[in-house]
Design a protein around this nucleic acid. Structure first.
Lengths: 191, 191
DNA sequence: CGCCGAGTTGAACTGAATCAAGAAACGTGG
DNA sequence: CCACGTTTCTTGATTCAGTTCAACTCGGCG
């Protein structure tokens, strides 16, 4: 719980009392490796803070291939924001890639927080704008960069990822095949 | 002005009085073709509703090529949301591709609205979640679809674009060269 | 021990980029 | 309103990044 409070305070400077109020409605939930926090077709009803562990979100494309849309690591939030806020069925799965300890906030509790805590509104706005920014950055990298540049960028920004998750998930996150990722890795060792 | 009010009411059902209050701070501004609503380096300070006209947002990639990141048409909002909400310099240009009539809301006026009008908070949240959704859809289409599928999709969803803006901008929006777009167009005529 | 998922590698193939040239449309000044 | 220069768009030839598919290795696990 302290970890979540510290995280909130680092996003938005708040007194300990306010910060504690903000997180009061989060409930502890654990997931074991390979279990699902969300399945396609469900309305995402929970906003999770990940205390330990790592997750991925993925969807299926038209030909039935898995596409990894996001990774969620320790000290960050996991959720399908679209499904969560627009109250519509998700097209994604969110799966635990390791055993995970999380803090869960339900949609209703979040609404309560929005109504009763102005700071929570601010926090929410900051978080969604940040998510928008991440998505936009990734979007631009897909438009502008080669596979090699995207690989190099991810390796630089999230070196831990390569130690924690199977390469095939990383490949589909980068929008390339696992063969190509393997070749990129080989090439980058030589340099 | 009535157009803006109608737009607001269609996003969020509201009484005429409330809707009018929501848009009270918007000011009319016109732009002529090829002028800029925002330049890279500036902090985006205005949220524009486009009554007539069409705009595009673009940035430069590492090699100095223009990349069109978005189009904004009549009856929608134009802004660099990241720069606007995070109060940091934009990396994009927003340019009028035709003469435009707009309604402009400044950052400060938006904050006022957020504080004084709960409905505006709701409206704002809906809009940013919708923008997030659009970006995510485009992101997925970049990951999953071929150039041809993306072209077909855009043609289906925004046929008007092809009549209003130069193809080279559409090409860079799709993440392809103008040569390739030209060939795709030729191929799709044959079918 | 044998199997299975994860990763690597090779060879052939392909979608899209590049580069360069030409045609068509556009707008600007005389 | 025409002439000229500038974009815009098309097209061809070539190249290249990344895919596909299949074979093979390796490490873990039942």
């Amino acid at each position: 719980m302290e970890q979540l409070i510290r995280y909130v305070q680092q996003v938005l400077p708040l007194s300990p009392a306010k910060a504690t109020a903000l997180v009061a409605r989060f409930k502890p939930v654990v997931f074991e490796k390979n279990s699902y926090l969300l399945q396609a077709g469900q309305i995402c009803n929970t906003y999770y803070f990940i205390e330990t562990g790592i997750l991925r979100a993925y969807a299926y494309d038209l030909e039935g291939n898995e596409v990894t849309t996001a990774f969620f690591s320790e000290n960050s939030f996991a959720s399908d924001l679209l499904s969560f806020f627009q109250r519509e069925p998700s097209r994604e799965y969110i799966q635990a890639l390791s055993d995970c300890r999380t803090w869960a906030l339900s949609y209703d509790d979040m609404q309560e927080n929005f109504h009763s805590l102005p700071e929570f509104r601010e926090f929410g706005r900051l978080k969604i704008v940040a998510s928008y920014g991440q998505l936009k950055g990734r979007m631009l990298s897909m438009l502008q960069e080669t596979a090699e540049e995207r690989y190099a960028g991810l390796l630089k920004n999230s070196p831990g990822l390569f130690r924690q998750v199977p390469l095939k998930y990383i490949a589909s996150y980068l929008g390339i095949t696992d063969s190509t990722l393997s070749r990129l890795r080989k090439a980058s060792v030589k340099k």
